[in-house]
């Protein structure tokens, strides 16, 4: 515990650096693009349209568990993107900033933490689009929306924790870098992003699955917040996923701080 208190107070002391690195990433993200920030809208919308086409026009499905397909998919996609982008950014953060790591000392976690800024920024844009979409399709908004930061935080815990683990080991074992795109590509389909967990929930391995892949619990939890009247059969699996998120976060930080002093020797 002492380790974490020390780390977080160190990060708090260097918060200005954290802030300026985050600001750097956001401000260069859309430099020299014509559409700029609109790209943060285009990407999730396009993903949704593709699946909407597949579901409505090809598979002739008109709703998922009784809710508009658009809302199910879009809520899934923005959360998935938050996970995927955060995970990738954190995994690559040290390698992407090797010029800093090899020339200046400051707590290396700052680099990892600051790298999530862009994905969080894109998520907020996506969320705004979701709210507009929701108002347009079902004309209501749920008040539980205020609970959303909690779901976001849990997902960030998992994404950062997993990213830190990949980051710590990939500097020495670059093979791990090859795995990242695979996780991002196939994870999308094995998590309830373009479908709901309802259909899976009857199987007896479901709770174990929610423990292994916490996106199951977190995305479903987010939907109960985002979509009015959205319900899950039993909330147990959500608690299991939350447990995984928290454990992954602290394990990730622990491993990262144990490995950080050797990073520069392998860069």
């Amino acid at each position: 515990m002492g380790l974490y208190i020390k780390l977080f107070s160190e990060i708090f002391r260097e918060r200005e650096l954290l802030y300026i690195l985050a600001k750097r990433d956001i401000s260069i993200r859309y430099k020299q693009t014509y559409l700029g920030i609109i790209w943060a809208i285009i990407r999730p919308v396009l993903t949704m349209l593709v699946f909407l086409f597949a579901f409505k026009n090809v598979a002739k499905i008109n709703d998922i568990s009784g809710f508009p397909i658009q809302l199910i998919i879009f809520s899934g996609v923005i959360f998935w993107n938050l996970f995927a982008n955060t995970f990738q950014a954190v995994s690559n953060s040290i390698l992407a900033n090797h010029n800093l790591v090899s020339k200046v000392y400051f707590p290396r976690l700052i680099i990892a933490f600051s790298s999530i800024a862009v994905s969080l920024f894109d998520f907020i844009i996506g969320l705004i689009v979701y709210i507009i979409l929701s108002l347009f399709l079902i004309q209501t908004l749920s008040f539980t929306l205020l609970l959303l930061p909690f779901a976001v935080l849990l997902l960030l815990f998992f994404s950062i924790g997993l990213g830190l683990l990949f980051c710590s080991f990939s500097i020495k074992y670059r093979d791990l870098l090859q795995m990242i795109p695979l996780i991002v590509q196939y994870g999308f389909f094995v998590s309830p992003i373009v479908y709901t967990a309802q259909s899976l929930q009857i199987s007896n391995w479901f709770n174990v699955y929610a423990l292994i892949n916490p996106l199951v619990g977190i995305v479903e939890y987010a939907r109960t917040i985002l979509i009015p009247n959205y319900e899950v059969k039993s909330a147990d699996f959500i608690y299991l996923s939350i447990t995984t998120c928290i454990i992954t976060f602290f394990v990730g930080i622990y491993v990262f701080t144990k490995k950080e002093s050797s990073f520069v020797d392998y860069l």
Partner: peptide
Amino acid sequence: ASLLEVGTGFHPEL
């Protein structure tokens, strides 16, 4: 403070 290089972390786009 260590200066092992001039302009550490300069970002070309900024």
